[in-house]
Structure formats: C-alpha cells, structure tokens
C-alpha cells in the first residue's frame, strides 16, 4: 500500500525542503518509486535540490490547480539527477510549483479548490504507481497544511532547538490530533555543536510524547552545498546521510 508523507514545520527556513529531498532520494535509491510534490506555492524551492531548472518546467502544480493540465503532466522524472540509472528499480518524480511571479500572484489572489490537491495526489500515486509520495509544504498553518496533514499516513514535523519552533510545533500537533493523523514523527534540525543530541532528543520526546526520528546537526557542508544537489547523494557515507537512512526505516515501522 502506497504511503503519503507530509513534511511540515511551523516556521520557514527550518529545513523542510532539504529534509524532503534527502529522505525522498534515500528511499528512491533503495529501489522504490517515489514522488515529491512542492506544495509550497508561495515560496517554492525544492526543484533546486533536484537540479530542475525553472526553464525546463513549463508544467507545474499551479497549472494543474487551474485545471489546465492533468497532474501527471507536471511530474518530472528527476531520477538521473540523483544518480539513478534508467534501469534501476527506483524512480524519483517531482511536481514543482511555479517560480514565476505572475503565477504565484495569481494563485495567491484567486486561491484554488484545496480538494484538487487531494484528488491530484491520489491520481499521481495511481498513475505513476508510487510507493511513496512526499509532500513538501509551506510553513505555518493554512487550509493546504490541514489538508496535507489529513491525507498523510505519516506527518514529519521539523523543528529547530528554538522557543518559537517549540511553541509552533505544539500548536501544529494539536491540529494534527484533531485531524486524526495516523503517525507522527519529529525531526530536529540545525542542532548547534554545544547541544547534546541525545539529551535533546530525550527532552523533546518527553515534552511532546512523540518519537524523534532523527537529530541533524547544523552543518557547514549542507550550507556549502547551497541547495545545488541532494546531500545524501553527494556524501552517502556522511553521518547525516546515515541518519536519513534511519529516518527512512522509521517511516515504514508500525
């Protein structure tokens, strides 16, 4: 049975897109068929990590939401960009959001029927025969966020060790409970050197009563890559990449 996983955080810049790209690539490299949808319509970005240039993407999530195309037409096969050969079992598809100012303005002004998101995701899973669908989201709470939480099998909340993130995560978890989320995992990102990761993990787990799937350090190497590639693909043996593999395993547990 296919799994839908939403990656969310209360605030921006937490590392959602970076996390989504890495976890999706990790799983695709394990031989699975994986889709990623960039639902961060107001501030899209994940296409950069998969080296998909805006000039190449004439079809986007926006055009689907306006009823111009079917969602499959906006799905780009980026398998090669993460080093997957054509005969490998694994596949990675990305449905990007438009980066054109006009398109963003139009969707912010006119809105769209959020139910189309739900319908589109299902269509995508079916027609591309996906094993996993990852939804990269816009930060904060909105109808779109609510919907992506409601339809997900797993919700992954990213937080940094920061008071604003702690508060926001608590609010989001309230919402997630109302929406009867089936499985929730936390990931702590940008943990600076002085903090003890194990102690932090334990503390956060106690506070929220939910599992922390991975603790990621604030990493200069991630910064240096500057969103021009997927970290796990570039440095497969790095401890960060290992942590992503551990997170991937936990998505399937239980």
């Amino acid at each position: 049975m296919p799994k839908v996983i939403s990656i969310h955080s209360y605030r921006g810049g937490t590392g959602k897109s970076n996390f989504t790209a890495n976890i999706a690539a990790t799983i695709a490299l394990q031989g699975k068929r994986v889709g990623v949808v960039d639902t961060d319509v107001p501030s899209p970005g994940i296409h950069n990590l998969f080296c998909l240039e805006p000039e190449q993407t004439t079809h986007t999530l926006n055009s689907y939401l306006w009823g111009e195309i079917s969602i499959e037409e906006a799905a780009y096969d980026v398998s090669r960009n993460i080093g997957l050969s054509d005969d490998a079992g694994g596949r990675l598809y990305l449905v990007p959001s438009s980066v054109k100012a006009d398109s963003i303005a139009r969707i912010l002004r006119d809105g769209y029927d959020v139910r189309l998101m739900n319908d589109g995701f299902r269509k995508l899973v079916k027609s591309l025969q996906l094993d996993y669908l990852f939804i990269d989201t816009h930060p904060g709470l909105s109808k779109e966020t609510f919907l992506s939480i409601a339809i997900s099998h797993v919700l992954i909340l990213i937080l940094r060790p920061d008071k604003q993130d702690y508060q926001g995560t608590a609010v989001t978890m309230d919402v997630a409970k109302q929406l009867k989320v089936r499985k929730l995992l936390l990931a702590i990102n940008k943990v600076y050197g002085q903090l003890n990761p194990d102690a932090l993990k334990q503390k956060v787990e106690e506070t929220y009563g939910e599992k922390v799937a991975g603790v990621f350090p604030l990493s200069e190497e991630v910064v240096q890559l500057a969103s021009e590639g997927v970290f796990c693909v570039r440095y497969p043996e790095h401890p960060i990449s290992q942590t992503f593999r551990q997170v991937a395993a936990q998505i399937d547990q239980g």
Binding site: K163, Y166, Q167, G168, T169, A170, V171, D174, K203, V204, T207, Y208
Partner: peptide, 10 residues
C-alpha cells in the same frame, strides 16, 4: 524551554 513553550501553546 520546550516544556513551557509547548504548554503555553496548548
């Protein structure tokens, strides 16, 4: 921090 912040929000 996480405790208090989470409580306040709740």
């Amino acid at each position: 921090t996480p405790n208090q912040a989470a409580d306040q929000a709740a």
